[in-house]
Write a protein that binds this DNA or RNA. Structure first.
Length: 688
DNA sequence: GCTACCCCTG
DNA sequence: CAGGGGTAGC
């Protein structure tokens, strides 16, 4: 029995292990029946494997089904041994014993057969079976079959042989008519509580059988019936006692509940009644479900110890269930504002206060966290506010914009001084501009911001008080833009490996440019690794000698520049742009000559007076402070004639018709004077 | 795949 | 003049 009690509390896996242990432990004490059943079980589970293997597999891998089967067998064996133990759930035990005995067959092999075949009452038997169960005759046996097998009954039956057996059968039948019919009415929980309702037909049959019984059998039958009734009464009494105890507990809890909340209104009474009613019904359900209403299979699953544990667990569940609604009741009532009790109101107020306090704390915490990182968070939260100033400074076009673009002036005036006010009262002049420039500022690192911050962080409007010379900078603006673009090309996209130095370089160039130090770029040069406007000018002058400079040549002639991929690309791009303009002009004048009626290339010549030359000179030598080499005039004339001939020949229909011209022109590059190799070549050249 | 170049747009 | 897309050669 202790084994069974503990087994009910163990987990499934533990059960498996215990099952295995139980197998070995109970082998010695089990009856031959169990040994046989065990062998049968194992052979059924694994017909090919040895017994040891099967046991191992059961322990290690047996699923719930296997363990259940094994457990059933064990329980049956043990319950068979413990069958005579007085026990409140005797009906369950009886049923288990009935099943064991019936399925065991060999225990009392002649029980059924003799009882049915020798009495000549097959008709009655079959009739009963047909009414109680459609299953095998064994199923017709009453759950009370086992208690009838007390020593007294057995002795009597042994003496009276056939008639006694008949009496037992009749007793079983009788018992079935009084006890809940497991086979047919397993789920009718009310049956145990409500008075037994016997159908007229059954009652008639019963009476009919009673009349047929001999007096002796009537006597023994009456004894058995009375014993059965006594047992049933005891069972019912105990269940009733349980119910009363639980109701008592419920009342106590209800009293406590009302004491706490001083409930006086009827609504709460209704709640209490409801919960009590529900509890009562649940109690009944639990009781009926455990003792009566369980299905046959479930009953077979439960051994006596498990049954007790199950009942206790259900009682505990009931207790929990009846406690729950009471504790949750007031909380639910708080949701209805008009149904507050004084204490409920107080509780509600307290809860509200607590919620407010908690919310306040949360808000404070969030604000605290937010304000504790102003340097990091605020710039990211309000990035657009620094866009205008940064954009102007970085692009170097702030002067022009400040004089020409009133909208951007508004940005400088309004937004920059107090960024936080922007979100308050100051209207936004152009939100689109802000969002457009936003990525530029966000991408900048702290050093960039510090570089651009001085004009912005302080008082941007002071730039409208800048010296006049800084406002009108047509030439300087171009130079500055070139310088900026040089920095941009050099540092921003092309030097990701050195962001700090890039930022420093950019900052330095910005400061220099804003100081108006633009006249003497040669003093600023070399720009340690960057291209200056003078570099651009120098490149333009070099174009007069070479249209297709190699990268090595560029490195040679721009020795003051720290070359990298970006510098090289930028220089190449410069010359590409030079050529582009050059060829455009050539094509343009070639077509113009054709339109003017020129028929021969002989008529095409380039002099320093011609329009084409002026255009080219204006583009590459705007200041006209450099004497264009004569060779460039020759090459330009050759190029113009190439275009003229190609267009005359109609080669311009080919999309790549210019490639042939490029091929020719690229061979006409001449040597660039050595003086261009000097970093100060511009000074030397322009001073001449 | 990288590079240079052309072509186009802004 | 810068920048981007497309393309061809290496």
């Amino acid at each position: 029995m202790p084994d069974h009690d503990s087994t009910a509390l163990l987990s499934r896996q533990t059960k498996r292990r215990r099952v295995d242990i139980g197998v070995k432990r109970t082998v010695g004490t089990a009856s031959a029946f169990f040994a046989k059943a065990r062998a049968t079980f194992f052979s059924a589970m694994n017909p090919q494997g040895s017994e040891q293997d099967v046991e191992y597999s059961v322990v290690q891998h047996a699923d719930g089904e296997k363990s259940n089967v094994l457990r059933k067998l064990l329980k049956r064996a043990n319950s068979y041994e413990d069958a005579m133990m007085p026990f409140p759930g005797a009906t369950i035990i009886s049923q288990l014993l009935k099943n064991n005995m019936n399925k065991n067959g060999g225990t009392e092999p002649s029980f059924q057969a003799s009882g049915l075949s020798s009495t000549g009452s097959e008709v009655h038997q079959e009739d009963v079976c047909s009414n109680s169960s459609r299953d095998s005759p064994q199923e017709c046996l009453s759950p009370f079959g086992r208690p009838t097998m007390s020593q007294f009954d057995v002795d009597r039956l042994c003496d009276e042989h056939l008639r006694a057996k008949r009496a037992r059968v009749e007793n079983i039948i009788r018992g079935m008519s009084h006890s809940p019919s497991v086979a047919l009415r397993g789920n009718e929980n009310e049956r145990e509580i409500a008075p037994q309702s016997v159908s007229p037909r059954e009652s008639y049959r019963e009476n009919k059988r009673k009349q047929k019984l001999p007096q002796q059998q009537q006597q023994s039958f009456q004894q058995l019936v009375s014993a059965r009734k006594e047992q049933k009464r005891e069972e019912r009494r105990q269940l009733k006692q349980q119910l009363e105890d639980m109701q008592k507990q419920l009342r106590q809890l209800q009293e406590k509940f009302y004491q706490i909340y001083d409930s006086t209104d009827s609504e709460n009474d209704e709640d209490g009644n409801l919960s009590e009613d529900s509890m009562r019904s649940e109690t009944m359900d639990a009781r009926a479900g455990d003792s009566v209403g369980r299905s046959d299979n479930e009953m077979c699953e439960l051994d006596p110890g498990q049954f007790i544990d199950r009942a206790r667990a259900l009682i505990r569940e009931q207790e929990v269930a009846e406690n729950k609604p009471k504790r949750e009741g007031p909380k639910e009532k708080e949701q209805g504002p008009n149904t507050f009790h004084p204490e409920g109101k107080h509780l509600a107020e307290t809860l509200k206060q607590e919620l407010n306090t908690a919310m306040s704390q949360v808000v404070d915490t969030v604000v605290k966290v937010f304000s504790s990182k102003p340097s990091r968070q605020l710039p990211q939260v309000f990035p657009p506010l620094q866009i205008p100033q940064a954009r102007f400074a970085v692009n170097g076009e702030n002067h022009n914009f400040h004089t020409a673009n009133q909208r951007l002036q508004c940005f400088g005036d309004v937004i920059i001084p107090n960024p936080l006010d922007t979100f308050g009262s100051v209207p936004m002049p152009g939100a689109t501009d802000q969002t457009e420039a936003l990525p530029l500022v966000v991408r900048k690192n702290s050093s960039d911001q510090s570089a651009s911050a001085p004009p912005a962080g302080g008082r941007p409007p002071t730039r409208h008080h800048s010296p006049p010379e800084s406002l009108d900078l047509t030439r300087e603006t171009t130079s500055l833009r070139t310088k900026m673009s040089s920095h941009h090309m050099n540092h921003h996209p092309c030097s990701p490996a050195h962001p700090p130095s890039a930022a420093e370089g950019l900052s330095l160039s910005l400061i220099k440019s804003e100081c108006g130090d633009l006249q003497d770029m040669s003093e600023i040069s070399p720009y340690s690794g960057s291209l200056s406007p003078n570099h651009l000018k120098k490149a333009k002058l070099m174009f007069f000698y070479t249209r297709y400079p190699s990268s090595n040549m560029l490195k040679t002639y721009f020795s003051d520049v720290k070359f990298n991929r970006c510098i090289t690309s930028q220089l190449i791009k410069w010359f590409s742009n030079f050529r582009e303009f050059y060829y455009i002009q050539m094509e343009k004048y070639a077509r113009q000559a054709i339109n003017d009626g020129v028929t021969s290339t002989e008529e095409l010549s380039i002099t320093r007076d011609c329009e084409l030359y002026r255009a080219l000179n204006m583009h590459y030598n705007k200041a006209n402070d450099f004497e264009v080499p004569e060779r460039f005039l020759e090459v330009a004339q050759i190029t113009l004639r190439e275009f003229f001939n190609a267009i005359i020949a109609g080669k311009d229909v080919d999309p790549s018709w210019k490639k042939a011209i490029y091929k020719v022109i690229c061979k006409l590059d001449s040597e660039v004077p050595e003086i261009f190799k000097s970093p100060n070549c511009l000074q030397e050249l322009l001073h001449e």
